[in-house]
Every structure is written in structure tokens, then in C-alpha cells.
Amino acid sequence: MTQRKRGPWTILKERLGYENPWMQVREFDVLRPDGAPGLYGVVEPKNAAIGVLPAFENGDTVLVGQYRFALEAYSWELPEGGGAVGADPLDAAKRELAEETGLSASHWCELIEFDVSNSITNERAHSYIAWGLEAGAPAREGSEADMQMRRLPLHEALSMATSGSIRDGFTLIMLMTAVEKARLGALDPDLSRSILSGLEKA
């Protein structure tokens, strides 16, 4: 392989270190920005991260709880999942919301797109707010058999986030972004009123 530059880094050699149906780990022999030799590993998920903040007219939202294998801990989160890289992330968001909660929504708004980590993975996250909600039956995967669902006022979800009861970074980002956009008037007016009404009950 011919040497190539990636910003101030020089890639000398690269190889596939590990692969499964959900991700691969690519390893690079490099010259660091200071010119010294180094080793860099990048986790490359085969799906983009997808998240949804459901917003009810009265200011409630929905959290789902499940045991997270990698963390060895139970976690309360907004509905999240994955969607194929290159596919429409909104389609994946609609699917994940229905699968995990049974909810469907008549209105959707892109919330925020961001990099999950700036050091070990190139995973990209896409998130949405869903409102105009209708209830249905969840259709969870086998890995989600322990999942619970909880409807609660938005201010309670925010309190869980600021107290450390919610530790999922994706959920924290979605909650804080939705509240700030509502306060700034950067969302649909009816949606903003719903979000802010969920805070006024605190």
C-alpha cells in the first residue's frame, strides 16, 4: 500500500483486524503528527446510530429501559437503534420508534446530527423529534425482550439526565438540544409549546 496522508497523520499500512455483521475494526500503522511511529484503531459500525424523542401534546415523553451488555448495567434512554449507512435515517427512526414503543407519529423533525466519538469510531448519529403520536403495540427484537417503557413529563426526564440516572450520551444530547431549540423558537411553534409545557410542570 502506498503511503497516504490523513490530515497531519501519515498512514503507512492498514488492515482489517476484526469484523462481524454489525461492525469492523480497522487498524493503521501511522506516523503521528509529531513524526513518531504509532498505531491507530478505528471501530467502523455498519449502521448509523438513530434516536427519537417522542413529544406528547401535554409535555410528556417516553423512555425505554434495557440492560446494556457492554456496560453491564440497566439503562433508561430515549428510543434508539440503528439504520443502514447510506439509507434514509428518517425511515430507520420511524421503524425504531414503532418497534420499541409501538408509537407512530404524524409529524417528524430532524433534531441533531453528530459524531458519536472523535477518537475511536467513525459512527454518525441522526436524531429526530416525533409528535402527533398514536399508540400501538411494540414489535421488539429478541435482544430487547427485557425492555420496559415509561411515559413521563419532560422535566422528569431532564431531572434524570442531570442527576446521572440517565447516563446514555445520545439521550442526553437529544434532551438538551430539544429544550434549547424550543426555547430559541427553532422548532414548530406547537411542538415548542409542548416541550416547554413539559418543563413548566417542574
Score class of each variant (00 low, 15 high):
129 I>D: 11
127 S>T: 14
56 F>M: 03
196 L>G: 13
139 A>M: 15
130 A>K: 15
92 A>S: 07
4 R>T: 06
117 S>L: 13
137 A>P: 12
130 A>D: 08
171 T>Y: 04
115 D>H: 15
120 I>M: 11
114 F>M: 14
186 A>C: 02
149 M>Q: 15
131 W>G: 08
7 G>E: 05
144 E>T: 15
60 D>C: 14
161 A>S: 12
90 L>Q: 10
138 P>F: 14
114 F>D: 04
115 D>I: 14
189 P>D: 13
39 L>C: 14
18 Y>T: 12
151 R>C: 10
200 E>W: 04
188 D>M: 02
194 S>G: 10
25 V>D: 05
141 E>R: 13
5 K>H: 10
85 V>K: 01
22 W>C: 09
11 I>V: 13
149 M>G: 12
107 H>P: 08
114 F>I: 11
54 P>I: 02
151 R>L: 04
137 A>K: 15
201 K>V: 12
97 L>D: 00
7 G>R: 02
43 V>N: 00
117 S>Y: 11
172 L>Q: 01
156 E>P: 07
156 E>N: 08
192 S>Q: 04
152 L>Y: 03
197 S>P: 00
33 P>H: 01
9 W>T: 06
67 Y>C: 10
25 V>S: 06
75 S>E: 12
118 N>E: 11
175 L>F: 04
112 I>T: 09
43 V>P: 00
62 V>A: 06
27 E>M: 03
75 S>N: 08
183 R>T: 12
181 K>E: 01
71 L>D: 07
91 D>N: 13
100 E>Y: 01
121 T>N: 12
63 L>F: 00
146 D>Y: 11
70 A>H: 09
181 K>Y: 00
38 G>C: 05
68 R>M: 10
102 G>D: 01
62 V>Q: 05
76 W>P: 15
34 D>Q: 08
81 G>H: 15
171 T>S: 01
113 E>F: 11
171 T>K: 05
155 H>D: 09
188 D>T: 00
141 E>V: 10
134 E>G: 12
104 S>M: 02
109 C>Q: 09
155 H>K: 04
95 R>Q: 14
151 R>H: 09
105 A>L: 07
2 T>H: 05
158 L>S: 00
177 T>F: 01
55 A>L: 03
29 D>P: 06
202 A>V: 00
47 N>K: 11
68 R>F: 11
10 T>N: 05
64 V>A: 08
24 Q>S: 04
166 I>P: 01
54 P>Y: 00
65 G>W: 10
185 G>R: 03
